[in-house]
Computed example of a mutant assay.
Amino acid sequence: MNYIKDMRKLIGHQTLFTLGCGVIIEDGERILLQHRTDEDNWCIPGGVMEIGESFEQTAKRETFEETGLQVEKLDLFGIYSGEACFVKYPNGDEVYSVQLIFKTSCYKGELKQMDIESREHRFFLKEELPQNLNPRQKAFILDWAEKKQLPVIS
């Protein structure tokens, strides 16, 4: 089942409303970011909820698919919405997403460096964050770096 593909067959390029879940994975004072293959930017692991999934199931599934890591003990970090959550892709598809972001330092498994969605994974200190952060994720990555009070709702 692929909700996005099914909906695109019905609505074409019109704006699709989605719910995304992501996970801030911490290793001490560092955050795990992935360098996307489809965009030249860095982001946290995550993706779109499928029909019937819970928020936690989505976050865990997407993180495993993109990193090979199994995450546990997820805490809500924040809920993000607004203009920064809208994107128009090069093919004309438009998406507006509300994003539920979790945080954890409890993970296991072997980090896979290359897959269809990411070309590299790296842990960064807040002082080392790359300049080219994903514009739809920049707010919560910077909130993490600035240790904002949780949960952040914007």
Rank of each mutant, 00 (worst) to 15 (best):
Y96I: 01
M7N: 05
F55T: 00
K126H: 11
H121C: 05
F86R: 00
F124P: 07
V23P: 14
M7T: 05
Q14K: 04
K108P: 02
V71L: 08
P45T: 04
A84T: 03
K108E: 11
I25C: 12
F77Y: 10
V95R: 14
Y96P: 00
G46I: 01
L10T: 04
G28W: 05
N41M: 12
F86A: 06
S154E: 08
L69P: 00
I116Q: 09
K147A: 12
E56K: 12
I4T: 13
I51T: 11
A145R: 09
G82D: 08
N134I: 00
H13N: 08
L125W: 07
I116H: 13
E29D: 11
E128Q: 14
A59Q: 02
Q57A: 10
I153M: 15
Y3W: 09
H35C: 01
K60D: 10
F123H: 03
P130V: 00
T67E: 10
F124Q: 15
V87K: 15
I24G: 02
M7P: 04
R136G: 09
E110F: 11
G82N: 13
R61A: 00
F124M: 02
S97F: 11
R8Q: 09
R136E: 06
E120I: 02
F123Q: 05
K60A: 15
V23T: 06
C21S: 09
E83V: 05
